[in-house]
Amino acid sequence: MKPIEYRAETVEEAIRLSQADLGAYEDEMEVTIKEKGSKGFLGIFGSKESVIEVSLLDKHWERKLHDFLKGILKSFDEETFSEVKLVGRTYRVRIEGEEVARLIGKHGKTVAALQHIMNIYANRMAPTKVNVTVDIGDYRLERKRLVEEIAHRTAKSALSKRNKIIMEPMLAFERRLVHEVISQYEELKSYSVGFEPYRKVVVEYSERKHSYDRKSDPKRRRYESVRPNSDRQSA
């Protein structure tokens, strides 16, 4: 975010003006004093305004997103602990509590909806494009292990049957995990089909990866490089 300039009779007034305008606390701002004002002669002649430049710190956006999250959590009437931390360009949201199953929902649909809403809000709020990930009670970690296990089983099935397998609909981060697992198998390829929230991963056996590629054969390339021109023309 580019620094925003504020002018007032004094530096203190300029800071108060910026806080009211930006909805920020003083410790959430980086203030640079460009010019200190002066009253001039008799407070009339030669008077100058104070000029400051204000940049918002990461903690401001973290608080704004956290306040938005708290408003949503109130509707669930659950006692929870939550925190928001900006890492790079990703806001990592963590929610803990004794009864958080309702926040996760069946097959993670509720937490996925919460993450979607927070992504929309964060990108409208923040000055640059960001991403939001929401983890409730280590759900993402446990789900990651399960999805990777399912992906490996699917890969082995596709290899043994040499066919195509269409998996069940998954969330975006789950599909990424599947693609990462399938990329470890040279004989397989994966791609996503369909539209949200029913988008699925297809795991497919690819015979083309086993076919002989004359151009990629290093021995043939060396042979081509030493053949006489007459031989190349007659080939």
Results as ranks from 00 to 15, higher is better:
Thr133Leu: 06
Met29His: 03
Asp135His: 01
Glu79Thr: 05
Ser157Lys: 14
Leu171Thr: 12
Ser82Pro: 01
Ser230Ile: 12
Arg220Trp: 15
Asp77Gln: 14
Val132Pro: 02
Ala113Glu: 06
Lys189Asn: 10
Ile166Tyr: 11
Leu146Phe: 12
Ala113Gln: 11
Val54Ala: 03
Phe81Ile: 02
Glu196Asp: 12
Thr128Trp: 13
Asp21Thr: 06
Gln184Cys: 12
Gly194Arg: 11
Ile4Tyr: 12
Ser183Ile: 07
Tyr212Val: 13
Asp213Glu: 06
Ser75Ile: 08
Ser225Lys: 15
Ile120Ala: 00
Phe45Gly: 07
Asn119Thr: 08
Glu142Ile: 03
His210Lys: 15
Ile117Gly: 01
Lys48Phe: 15
Tyr223Arg: 14
Ser234Gln: 14
Ser55Ile: 12
Ile95Val: 05
Gln233Ile: 15
Glu35Trp: 04
Tyr223Glu: 15
Leu65Met: 10
Ser211Leu: 13
Ser50Arg: 06
Lys200Gln: 06
Glu187Ile: 10
Lys39Tyr: 10
Ile44His: 02
Ile166Met: 13
Ile165Asn: 06
Ala151Ile: 02
Met167Ile: 05
Leu22Phe: 02
Leu188His: 10
Val11Lys: 04
Lys156Val: 15
Arg221His: 09
Ala8Ile: 06
Pro169Glu: 09
Leu171Tyr: 15
Asp27Glu: 07
Lys106Gln: 12
Met170Pro: 07
Lys85Ser: 11
Ile136Met: 00
Glu26Lys: 11
Glu28Gln: 06
Arg143Leu: 01
Leu159Ser: 04
Ala235Asp: 15
Arg124Pro: 07
Ile166Asp: 12
Tyr198Val: 03
Gly88Leu: 06
Pro197Asp: 08
Lys48Glu: 10
Ser160Phe: 15
Ser230Gln: 14
Lys215Arg: 08
Val181Trp: 01
Ala235Tyr: 13
Gly71Ala: 03
Leu73Met: 03
Tyr212Cys: 08
Lys156Ser: 13
Ala122Cys: 02
Ala14Ser: 04
Ile104Glu: 00
Lys200Ser: 05
Asp27Gln: 07
Lys85Ile: 10
Gly105Lys: 01
Thr154Arg: 09
Gly71Asp: 10
Tyr223Val: 14
Lys129Gly: 05
Phe45Gln: 07
Phe76Gly: 03
Ile120Arg: 02
Lys2Ala: 13
Val130Cys: 00
His179Ala: 07
Tyr198Gly: 00
Lys48Asp: 07
Gln115His: 09
Ile72Asp: 01
Ala101Gly: 11
Leu188Pro: 03
Gly194Glu: 11
Glu98Phe: 01
Glu83Phe: 01
Val31Lys: 06
Ser234Asp: 14
Met170Asn: 10
Ile165Gln: 05
Ser192Thr: 12
Lys129Gln: 08
Ala235Trp: 14
Glu35Lys: 11
Glu13Lys: 02
Tyr191Ser: 04
Leu159Thr: 06
Arg16Gly: 08
Ser216Val: 03
Arg208Val: 13
Trp61Glu: 07
Tyr6Gln: 03
Val132Ile: 07
Thr110Lys: 01
Arg232His: 07
Val134His: 02
His179Gln: 11
Asp217His: 05
Pro127Ser: 05
Leu17Pro: 03
Glu142Thr: 03
Ala112Tyr: 08
Arg140Ala: 01
Leu57Val: 04
Gly137Gln: 00
